[in-house]
Simulated assay, not measured.
Amino acid sequence: MATAFLKMHGAGNDFAIFDARQVALAMPPERVRRLADRHRGIGCDQLIVMEPSTRADVFMRIFNPDGSESGACGNATRCVARLLGGAATIETRGGILTAANAEQGVTIDMGSPRFGWEEIPLAYAMDTADMPVAWSELERPSAVNMGNPHVIFFVADANVVPLESLGPEIEHDLIFPERVNVNIATVLNRSHIRLRVWERGAGLTLACGTGACATFAAARRRGLVDDSATISLPGGDLIIAETAGGGISMTGPVSTAYRGETDL
């Protein structure tokens, strides 16, 4: 039996979205890996399953291409919010997020960043604003949890860092018990950051919403940016801002690529 899905993306970060609010849909790791394969499946950075929620308008389950499950995905949250009409509450493993329509697309209140070493989590206690660790030329990063664990390196030129090789090495380092997303950032000025991201379980992606939020939070903590900034990723720009309550909002574009069916 064919199962319907939507292919959507936010700033090039692309998703295969399945609606399981009426009929349950199992997504074992082998099935996720097959569907996410860009040569033999649909192909996507993450596979999303919309499920019923007793606490919000929908529960969003997020699967990485390697079959692992993620706690949050900002760009996917904007896509699901658009499907629900823009204004919505969306429950994830990382918490409940609130969405609203915006001139530039959809705005998500991503909640507050967490900086405690045990909240990231790290393997042992250390200063998460200026970690005394290094991998090759990448050194003294910050660590932030935005529903997912992130490590952020501030460098002179993000484009020249060999993230294809350093990304998987850092992701799987034993200092990160749950693995980690790797962000390479260049602060262009106090309202503009250039960013590249190696996503845990997915690899290099054109954009990462939680990565943009984590990078902004780390930059604010170091006093590098003002209370809002444009984060420029390979797939496009996201607007990240500090909210009145100390949280972080993310605004960015949403696009539907196509509707399809697949035989599970």
Rank of each mutant, 00 (worst) to 15 (best):
R196F: 03
D173C: 10
D127Y: 07
F115D: 04
P162A: 00
E51Y: 06
G95Y: 01
G43Q: 03
A214W: 02
A11F: 03
E199I: 03
P121N: 07
N101F: 07
V106L: 07
A212S: 15
D226Y: 04
H192W: 11
D19L: 07
A185P: 03
A123L: 13
G201D: 05
F18C: 02
S112W: 06
N145K: 04
A218K: 08
M110Q: 02
P168H: 03
G10H: 08
M60R: 01
V151K: 06
V58H: 10
A207E: 04
Q104A: 15
A241N: 05
A212I: 10
A87G: 07
G211M: 07
W198C: 01
G10I: 05
G245P: 01
Q22I: 10
G71D: 06
R190I: 10
A72Q: 11
S68Q: 08
L84D: 09
A56L: 12
G247C: 03
C73Q: 08
Q46K: 02
L264H: 04
V80A: 04
R221Q: 15
I184C: 10
P253D: 12
W117L: 06
Y124R: 14
F216V: 01
L122P: 05
P121I: 11
D127S: 07
C208N: 03
H172R: 14
A185L: 10
L35V: 02
V49G: 04
T77Y: 08
T251A: 11
L166M: 12
